[in-house]
Design a protein around this nucleic acid. Structure first.
Lengths: 249, 249
DNA sequence: AAGTGGTCTAGACCACTAT
DNA sequence: TAGTGGTCTAGACCACTTT
């Protein structure tokens, strides 16, 4: 019945990972209470018959997992549950793009337009410069789910443009299959009421609450090359996070 | 002009961290293109005059940062930008709670109520069991920002209840100052239109789009002890994430 | 002075991939 | 077989905190 408390040298699971799980389990079961001190690293070395570097790596991982915190000269302490460092992974969004059978991306509109003030600012362009506007609709089982609008710098020299014109390239960013030549991106998420034309696309009511995931991508010269946003109504997708100590990973 | 390309042994910055920055800078400036292979770990050892473990740690960090990926027997490769693994940190929310001068939490209501079907299910209780309902309002510079509603298991034996009754305990979860005895928590974020009484509290219009951050906390026996949600209108707070290679951290 | 975490060495051995 | 990443050792030295 009692869980494993020694390190199996024949296991495929490396020693540091086994030790992480042993200690996590001890914390989860109350052997080590929140706020209390863990055995010193030297003690852990002796107890589990591993080298200092292995214990070190274990402790580092526990720190990364927000399970413990270390204080030089003092010790390693079990962290109480806090929401400070948690993060939302948009895994539902990723899974959506991964499922190529049910999920389809269709191009709705491509136009060359004059950048308005907002677009000029976001793409760091002179006013009234020409830019490319693209709008796409993502459907799941023929039902509209997600609306994407994007402005791209209009420059025939840049291969980015053609890559982005591809209807499937949207998903590439999420699944990692795309070999985009962006260096970095800035994302922010907010809520907004659906505008009339968005609602029409998504077959919902105007004014319905929706997520708005804005993105700006930069090329390797640190110039903004793309600005746009994903719009999707609430309820269709939601984002979750787990904090504290969960047994399963 | 040219950036540092050697490791300063007298620096307070550890060797592995310096090497991480050197390689990040090289990737950012195009020395190593996305998809291309990094020098082997043995080569990096020679070039920067560090031990294999130090290079190993460097590579591990770059992998964690989603900058490179490793393949045993093949090499280490620069990752193209992908949104697959990014996460939103709710730092704005944390900062809000940290600023005790401008941010105040006030208790609006505490009641003992009979759990309805939803609450019973969420807290894993028999129907019509008594539970504690708490609602709090968080204001910033006297302006209402955030509305919190929560159901707690009613059990005088549990010290959790008293701790949670404290008006300031809400912030404790976010800033880490609170010594809560929860083991783990499940969070999810969605959008919803403000209900009338929420809108009234927040001095906004009913139907306005708002974030809804739902939380369930579990005690050390893995029983749900608290279920509730934060409501805050869009625009007041937004969450951001950075992906790819940024110079500043 | 003793104990703690933090960094680092200079190798060893293993598993995997290419040739 | 040679090269690659992945794990691990058994120490060393340092900075910090406590006694």
């Amino acid at each position: 019945m009692s869980a494993k408390t020694t390190i199996d040298r024949d296991s495929y699971e490396p020693a540091y990972a086994q030790l992480v799980n042993i200690i996590r389990r001890q914390i989860a079961s109350g052997v080590f209470q929140p706020g209390s001190r863990l055995p010193s690293e030297a003690q852990l070395c002796k107890q589990y018959e591993v080298s200092p570097m292995t214990v070190r790596r274990t402790v580092n991982l526990l720190v990364e997992q927000d399970v413990v915190s270390t204080a030089q000269g003092k010790g390693t302490f079990v962290k109480p549950l806090e929401l400070g460092a948690f993060s939302f992974h948009l895994q539902e969004l990723q899974e959506l793009f991964r499922d190529r059978e049910r999920t389809k991306v269709t191009l709705r509109e491509v136009r060359i337009v004059n950048a308005d003030d907002t677009v000029s600012e976001k793409l760091d362009l002179p006013a009234t410069e020409k830019v490319i506007y693209i709008s796409r609709l993502l459907t799941r089982d023929q039902a509209p789910l997600l609306y994407h609008q994007q402005y791209l710098i209009y420059d025939p020299c840049r291969p980015i443009v053609e890559a982005e014109m591809d209807v499937t390239s949207l998903g590439g960013l999420f699944t990692g299959s795309g070999d985009t030549s962006f260096k970095k991106g800035l994302l922010s998420i907010d809520v907004a009421a659906l505008e009339a034309h968005e609602a029409a696309c998504l077959r919902t009511d105007a004014g319905a609450p929706a997520f708005r995931l804005e993105h700006t991508f930069y090329d390797f010269d640190d110039r903004p090359a793309s600005w746009g946003w994903l719009t999707f109504p609430g309820g269709s997708l939601s984002f979750s996070a787990r904090v504290g100590i969960w047994e399963e990973r």
